[in-house]
Design a protein around this nucleic acid. Sequence first.
RNA 1: GGCCCCAUCGUCUAGCGGUUAGGACGCCGGCCUCUCACGUCGGUAACAGGGGUUCAAGUCCCCUUGGGGUCACCA
Length: 490
Amino acid sequence: MRVRIAPSPTGDPHVGTAYIALFNYVFAKKHGGTFVLRIEDTDQTRARADSEQMIFDALHWCGLTWDEGPDVGGPYAPYRQSERSHIYQDHVGVLLAKGEAYRCFCTAERLQKVRIQQQAEKKNPGYDRHCRDLDPKDGEARAKAGEPHVVRMKVPLTGDIVVEDELRGPVTISAEQLDDQVLLKSDGLPTYHLANVVDDHLMEITHVIRAEEWISSTPKHVLLYQAFGWEPPRFFHMPLLRNSDGSKISKRKNPVSINYYRDIGILPHALLNFLATMGWSFGGDREKFTLAEMIDVFSWDRMSLGGPVFNLEKLSHLNELYIHELTEAQLVDAVIGWRFNREYLARLAPLFQKRIKKLSDVMSVVDLFFHGGELDYAPVLADMKVPDVTAEDTRDGLLAYVDKIEAREGFEPAMLEEVAREWADAQKWKTKHAFMLLRLAVTGRKASPGLFETMSVLGKDLTRRRIRAAAETIKKAAEAAKPAQAPKAK
RNA sequence: GGCCCCAUCGUCUAGCGGUUAGGACGCCGGCCUCUCACGUCGGUAACAGGGGUUCAAGUCCCCUUGGGGUCACCA
């Protein structure tokens, strides 16, 4: 039995990745199977250089390990899709030869036009199969001549495709719902659909455990297995983690980086335990259990399929339980490992040296680095504004800054400042006002060590979280103030 | 909007035809106690609605409603 997790290195290590990895891991261990980590980096425009390593580190921090992967190797190497291009190209060749796929020379502009047309006619959007019936020899010739094109899957025009989902039974989708999905992009790299099918087959993956968002593209994958003449794996679609409003968990509404939870002082065992209770239950009234215990009793019939809300309070409670059962020595180690250590203090030292008179002044200067995600903005709320800017625009401005720093790699003071200056300029805010707003958001006070140094040392995840929290606090406070001041309407 | 998935307290969930519908978080209160926290005891709070099937339905079926996902040369 072989399972895999296939993260895409496009940003911060996501709790959803840890969630799916956990269930793959547990299932593999339960049955003496093999757990594979494969990096799906076929989108060179979104791939981020530092992301892959962060995923390894974050998963390891959680306590999860894999038997095969880009870092540890294995009999099915390479495990990085960007290093497997020729494999996909060969397989596309097979599909082309069998008439299961075809070359498409449509331009992005034409596709765009078709889509607009379809929208105007209120038809379902999808490729109009313009190139589907081109003479393959013709296509071959044009491709040889260097004409840019993609390769599309030739999906049947009629009939039903049945996907056996192991968690919910057969899911039937009619072929009319599917369009001719791109398999090979014009840059020669495969899309997810092709790459995951080819790799899962070649890597002999027997059970695909992934998030529910994939369920509607699974018919395409099944069709692809059929086109190749391969036996498809078994599919398990896990429920999606949710924000408190029920939507798919997202960074806008909830911290999603594993590193955020590490940085606020969640213990890895608690995180894993919490993730395990999302959709799955141990049995009896147990909700605190170890990984080993979970592996011991694991079975799929204890899954519930409603999307679980990722609830910070509950996670926090579970974490409390774990902290309480630590020995004092372990507690000391945990706190030291977190932030009370030489390395972290060394980063802090330049920020507080000139600001203390006695060593005992240090806590009052650096306390903001040891708080979790939430600050109390009440005392400074009145100052959290830019002259002549509404609360709503202030919030949007802050969120815009978060978006801008998120789009950059690294988290160094110079980058943060550069972005901040550009951003303040774009907002047409004086840097003086803009930076004070940021300072209040990040530190909760008007006086602090250098803003960008502070953000950098605080870390990406806490910084972003605080700015977002401040932005919402400003908006909410304004809303709360409004009805009280507005004249009573009849 | 089309298609697909889902549906027990506010949240995470137990329940697998017959239960006073259980536990946990949160919230509220008692106890413990120099304070607070911990701990402990108790309380608040749910089967979305309507049809069937059945002697019996939270549990099975259908419809409605609600929520979510997905409809890219992103994964």
